[in-house]
Amino acid sequence: MEHLELFFKSIFIDNMVFATFLGMCSYLAVSKKVSTAIGLGAAVIFVLAVTVPLNWLLDQYVLREGALAWLGPEYASYDLSFLSFIMFIATIATMVQLVEIVVEKFSPSLYNSLGIFLPLIAVNCAILGGSLFMQSRDIATLGLALNYGVSSGIGWFLAILAIAAIREKIRYSSVPAPLRGLGITFILTGLMAIGFMSFGGMLTGGDEGNAKPSTEQVENTKKIEQDVKKLAKEKEAVELKTALNQ
């Protein structure tokens, strides 16, 4: 259940492109044709699925406060989390290189289809963003981290596929000249993001809602509590009166 919830949440509600604008540069640059968009999308899923669990291990056993306790009790007080940017990006850059070499060796056809996109991905914000969000959202287990990587990759894939399809079609419509190309893509993405916001109701009562009730809600509950207290007091008074009368 936890897995399913995280899966749908990362694809639709916290969609990397529409909710947090990660990987926008390559999203805008490589979305002119559906076929290239599919290639890049697949590469992003793949790299996220590898780097997020890896960085999760790094975070849990090296960087976090007290994470070095497995080396011995004297290391337990170290907090290396200020190094996380540099460690994460180094992991990503080396993993991308490694993946490139391995894929080239064992599956030339996949390598050809991913092609130039693999090295490009090392500097894609979606990849680093995946790891940083994994860290800031406190993903609990390695399985969930893998799930998070794959599902946010799928979300990114869906977004770039959709915009590429729209851009292929929109070539035949008469867009105002200054908006052609980049401008209309921005506005389209905005409209798609509004559409994706409607998925927000899909998981009502999710962890975010419970963790942080809005100030309005807090005030409302406070008011209700006060009202209840007042009513109780009044009731008591009335009861006292009736008791005295008797």
């Binding site: 000249a177 200054p178 506005i187």
Partner: peptide, 24 residues
């Protein structure tokens, strides 16, 4: 968040209609 995209889209619109050389 979607409005950020639309605002940038509008900025692009204004900029490119002022400078026709930039039109794609």
């Amino acid at each position: 968040s979607p409005m950020a995209l639309i605002v940038v889209g509008l900025i692009i619109w204004v900029q490119r209609s002022r400078n026709k050389a930039l039109i794609e």
